[in-house]
């Protein structure tokens, strides 16, 4: 029952999101055909109208939305408005794997590093370790990622000549052995994954630290300590489980971000991912690709929320009862 109700709510929300997105991108000035026609002396106004008619852009926005919805219900996102006219799904499909890989790797890296840092800083509050990680984490958070990326590229790519600067594989990639390919991919991914993780470290480790501090103050921890349990048992057996609750919410919320991709580091590292696709589509007013990505993003956000709810009820018996 709980799940059915949630899912029907989700469908209504999804419809709302698509209507709003559709209206907003059509409200923005400019049209997909502008890229061919703006300030192009070879294009007459009549030709511009003919092009717009060809793409169905002369119809009222609501009619266009109706046509779009009819297609999407059949899981067809239509064709891109850009001059390549490729199916939207093809364009998204080829960009998803690389974005997903980088995001998953960086998410894993973030959690593997940030959770222990958070716990340790909380347990050894105000120690040198706590202070040092605080400084490090905030510097990492505050430094613009494009700047860090460029510095690392200069150091590892130009000066030391250890890592490739941009792209996801070398020119002779296809001539490499299996192991060679593996090395090739991973050497290309080290910098992007590191740079995209650095910003996230601060947030998660701080959440973890404050969550942990909160829990340690609770009566039941005092009780546990009074019972004579070791520090280890108190912290990992009792405190950690509760302190992890907010992290589950954050994990759920980062699901849509997995395909989101970051424009900035994809642009800098020349990675053909979702961030760049979305950015270029917005600039080119490529309505169908923008709508495709927004819809997929919306669906993933809703699923992420649902998962977070479910995860919560698994981890916390109190939520189940209400």
């Amino acid at each position: 029952m709980f799940i059915l109700k949630k899912i029907s709510e989700m469908l209504v929300t999804l419809l709302g999101i698509t209507i709003l997105s559709f209206l907003i991108i059509h409200l923005a000035p400019g049209k997909p055909t502008d890229i061919l026609t703006d300030l192009n002396p070879k294009v007459t106004p009549e030709m511009r109208e003919r092009l717009e008619k060809m793409y169905g852009l002369d119809k009222p926005v609501l009619v266009q939305y109706g046509m779009w919805l009819k297609r999407v219900v059949k899981l067809d996102f239509g064709e891109s408005f850009s001059t390549d006219r490729r199916p939207v799904w093809d364009k998204i499909k080829e960009k998803i794997p690389i974005t997903l890989i980088i995001n998953i790797l960086s998410l894993v890296l973030i959690f593997v590093v940030a959770v222990p840092i958070g716990i340790y800083s909380a347990v050894k509050r105000y120690s040198y370790f706590d202070k040092a990680t605080t400084v490090f984490v905030f510097v990492g958070f505050a430094a613009p990622s494009f700047w860090i990326a460029l510095l690392l590229m200069i150091l590892f790519g130009v000066k030391l000549d250890l890592l490739p600067i941009s792209g996801i594989r070398s020119l002779d990639h296809n001539d490499l052995t299996y192991f060679g390919k593996l090395l090739d991919y991973s050497s290309h991914l080290i910098l992007p994954v590191f740079v995209s993780a650095i910003g996230g470290l601060a947030g998660i480790s701080r959440y973890m630290r404050s969550g942990m501090l909160e829990v340690i103050r609770q009566d039941y921890i005092t009780t546990a300590k009074a019972k004579g349990l070791t520090d280890k048992k108190v912290i990992y057996g009792h405190a950690l489980r509760n302190a992890l609750l907010p992290i589950i919410t954050i994990l759920g919320l980062s699901v849509p971000g997995l395909i989101g991709g970051s424009v900035i580091f994809e642009q800098i590292f020349g990675i053909p991912g979702m961030g760049r696709l979305f950015y270029q589509s917005v600039l080119g007013r490529d309505y169908s690709v923008v709508m495709g990505i927004l819809t997929i993003g919306a669906i993933l956000t809703l699923i992420g929320n649902l998962l977070a709810d479910l995860g919560y009820s698994l981890a916390d018996p109190r939520v189940r009862k209400t």
């Binding site: 998803i96 794997p97 690389i98 997903l100 890989i101 998953i104 790797l105 890296l109 590892f156 000549d161 250890l162 890592l163 490739p164 070398s170 020119l171 002779d172 490499l176 060679g180 390919k181 593996l182 090395l183 090739d184 991919y185 991973s186 050497s187 290309h188 991914l189 080290i190 994954v193």
Partner: peptide, 28 residues
Amino acid sequence: YSLVTMIALSLMPIMLLIGCDGKTSPAD
């Protein structure tokens, strides 16, 4: 580069975080 392969390919060395020489192009 299917999804699974790429994850498999890239996970291991990343975890080790070793700097490996990606340059296979001709001698510098």
